[in-house]
């Protein structure tokens, strides 16, 4: 299963490293990364393969959210299909 990780917040050093580290810890393979700065807001979107993840989805999600909270970022991980179904016919 593939999931989309989104990170939105104020740009600062180490966001990519921080999120990537969590992915490594859970054996999640990052397939694509795109970053953009919209106004002064940093938005990073990662497409990740979580099929070989070594922990339940909820645990990974909680850890990412915790990381987000500690760094004043909004971090979400959601199943890829939610975006596919909404934006593709």
């Amino acid at each position: 299963m593939r999931a989309v990780i989104t990170v939105i917040g104020k740009d600062m050093v180490g966001i990519l490293a921080g999120v990537s580290n969590i992915c490594v810890k859970y054996n999640v393979n990052i397939m694509e990364v795109s970053q953009s700065i919209m106004q002064d807001l940093f938005a990073m979107i990662m497409l990740a393969d979580i099929s070989d993840s070594n922990a339940p989805f909820a645990q990974l999600s909680d850890e990412l959210k915790k990381y987000g909270k500690q760094n004043a970022l909004s971090v979400h991980i959601m199943h890829e299909d939610i975006f596919n179904s909404m934006h593709r016919i």
């Binding site: 989309v4 989104t6 939105i8 694509e32 795109s34 953009s36 938005a43 979107i45 497409l47 909004s74 979400h76 959601m78 890829e80 939610i82 975006f83 596919n84 909404m86 934006h87």
Partner: peptide, 16 residues
């Protein structure tokens, strides 16, 4: 890959 704006639009709909 999915369009960045589409992804952010969905998240915005749910969050806000």
């Amino acid at each position: 890959m999915l369009n960045t704006n589409d992804i952010l639009e969905t998240i915005h709909m749910i969050q806000d």
